[in-house]
């Protein structure tokens, strides 16, 4: 239905100096269609920024191919001037304030809306005349958010745009994003590890873990695609036998098992008969549980060790909800 505007095939990236360690990206393939909001989700260091850097020709791939608007984006103004990517660690000239940065953006982005930029800057209470290097982390993020939204670029990337922003400012960003997107539909790629906050905004979800894509689906088909079954361990085992188990937790005689798939009314009734509780699984829980499963599937001692650190992160991830 929609036109494909990004095509990535077998993308691999080794960073120089990372030694024989795992690659930052390991044979990643996916495509992105026009005028949808995509979530590029994954933990810190999963490879999200690396992918966006290569797509915008700011970074270089070790292997694999990237087509944006049907062409190679490298040194290609015809592709680049349709893209906006303000990275999370974006650098600005030392002597620039936010006003300077917006003036520059107005030069390069054909669809730039100055009045929108000013309105957003006011919403985020951004000091326009203070030097950017003296801004707080949140204000720095706000500069990037304003440029990203006001550029109205056909393909806009937001790289963890919420860092340092408080809950109110983050909500403001999400609201303005939906508002402006509704009025000016375009392709948005939103990279985030705060999945619950952005889940409802997304039309499509790409989850990356340790340089590999582990999920690539419509957000709607993921919602309700898994269910958590909790209750007496023995009964949970009986009920979930033969199903695809995504995640398993035990608390003594009790167990909670997340299974893949939608339950029929009959199955729900059966669960009720067994005294089992069925709970919906949020996109974030689904991602977290799939990510952990990936580590378990490694099977090696190394995998187990990694899982240990992962669960720490999971706890943190869930604590941020």
């Amino acid at each position: 239905m929609s036109a494909e505007i990004i095509r990535v095939d077998g993308l691999t990236k080794h960073y120089r100096g990372s030694g024989d360690g795992a690659p930052a990206l390991d044979g990643v393939s996916f495509s992105i269609e026009a005028d949808k909001i995509y979530g590029l989700l994954g933990r810190n260091g999963a490879g999200k920024t690396t992918i966006m850097s290569i797509l915008t020709a700011q970074g270089f791939a070790t292997a694999g191919s990237v087509r944006v608007f049907g062409q190679n984006p490298y040194e290609n103004e015809r592709v680049l001037n349709r893209i906006c990517f303000i990275r999370e660690s974006q650098k600005y000239p030392d002597d620039f304030n936010a006003n300077h940065a917006f003036k520059a953006a107005a030069l390069f982005f054909d669809n730039w809306d100055q009045s929108l930029a000013m309105r957003l800057a006011k919403d985020f209470q951004l000091p326009l005349k203070r030097r950017i290097k003296k801004l707080s982390r949140g204000q720095l993020s706000a500069v990037g958010v304003v440029i990203g939204l006001a550029s109205r670029a056909e393909l806009t990337f937001f790289d963890e745009p919420y860092l340092g922003l408080d809950a109110v400012a983050r909500q403001l960003f999400y609201d303005r994003l939906v508002e402006d997107y509704t009025e000016y539909p375009r392709t948005i790629v939103l990279s985030s590890h705060l999945i619950d906050e952005v889940a409802n905004l997304l039309e499509h979800v790409i989850v990356i873990d340790q340089g590999r894509i582990i999920m690539d689906d419509d957000a709607e088909s993921l919602r309700g695609s898994a269910v958590a079954v909790a209750g007496q361990a023995a009964r949970v085992e009986v009920f979930t036998a033969g199903r695809t188990v995504i995640h398993r937790e035990g608390f003594g005689a009790l167990a909670s098992v997340t299974i893949d798939g939608v339950l029929s009314a009959g199955e729900r009734a059966e669960a009720a008969e067994l005294g089992l509780e069925l709970a919906p699984v949020s996109l974030q829980q689904l991602v977290v549980r799939r990510t952990i499963k990936g580590a378990v599937d490694d099977g090696s001692a190394d995998g187990a060790a990694r899982q240990g650190t992962k669960q720490g992160d999971t706890a943190r991830m869930e604590a941020t909800r």
């Binding site: 949808k36 909001i37 609201d175 939906v178 509704t182 409802n200 039309e203």
Partner: peptide, 8 residues
Amino acid sequence: AFHRINPA
């Protein structure tokens, strides 16, 4: 806008 969900 009201439910903060994707328009699509």
